[in-house]
């Protein structure tokens, strides 16, 4: 066997592996590039802060790549959003705990601070000044989506915006398909009501 043939024989598998890894990275890049902005806005609607949302999306990207990059590409969207929702839930739990601790430190016996959870700022209630700015920078439609109860908002965004089907939405949110249909129906009813009032 010639030196060239030997070189090819042992080099080709390595090159093939490199090419496969490169192709996988390209595919992942396309997928993440395609979902990142919507994911960021979804996270922002949930936590009410763009910086926090950016961190959550970054954590979700890392978690998704570590755990699910070898899954079939068709399964990536629900898996990615499942990781993101998990991160958002963790973030909100941490914030609730912080709120409880802060409430306790300020004096739990004070009726004004009696309900620590009630004192946790609502990320979707930005205050009068911010609300006025929101009216200019964000359409009333998006504001209405942001005011939906959390589960309804998640289902609406994944079904209507992200375009996941019922099964994938259920998988992303770790709920039953019946729950997805129920929450979507309620979300649509809320939004319709809001739009009728707005118009």
């Amino acid at each position: 066997m010639s030196t060239l043939a030997l070189t090819r024989r042992y080099a080709d598998p390595v090159t093939g592996t490199d090419q496969a890894a490169s192709a996988k990275t390209d595919t992942l890049d396309r997928f993440l590039r395609g979902v990142e902005r919507r994911a960021l806005r979804m996270a922002e609607l949930s936590v009410g802060d763009l910086d926090d949302a950016l961190e959550l999306v970054q954590e979700a990207m890392l978690g998704f790549v570590r755990r699910y990059r070898d899954k079939p590409e068709a399964e990536w969207p629900p898996l990615f959003y499942r990781v993101l929702e998990s991160r958002i839930t963790d973030h909100q739990r941490r914030r609730q705990v912080r709120g409880r601790v802060m409430g306790w430190l300020r004096g739990g016996s004070d009726p004004e601070w009696g309900d620590a959870l009630a004192q946790v700022p609502d990320p979707r209630e930005p205050g009068p000044a911010q609300r006025a700015a929101d009216q200019q920078t964000r359409s009333a439609l998006i504001a209405a989506v942001g005011r939906l109860p959390r589960r309804q908002r998640q289902v609406f965004l994944l079904r209507v915006w992200e375009g996941l089907d019922v099964a994938d939405t259920a998988r992303a949110l770790a709920v039953g398909e019946g729950s997805v249909k129920t929450h979507l129906s309620r979300a649509l009813a809320h939004l319709r009501e809001h739009l009728e009032q707005w118009q």
């Binding site: 996988k24 990275t25 990142e36 960021l40 999306v57 890392l62 790549v65």
Partner: peptide, 13 residues
């Protein structure tokens, strides 16, 4: 966002 994506892709490599 781009930096976050690149960090994740580095992990993928």
């Amino acid at each position: 966002l781009n930096r976050a994506r690149q960090t994740a892709l580095t992990e993928a490599a």
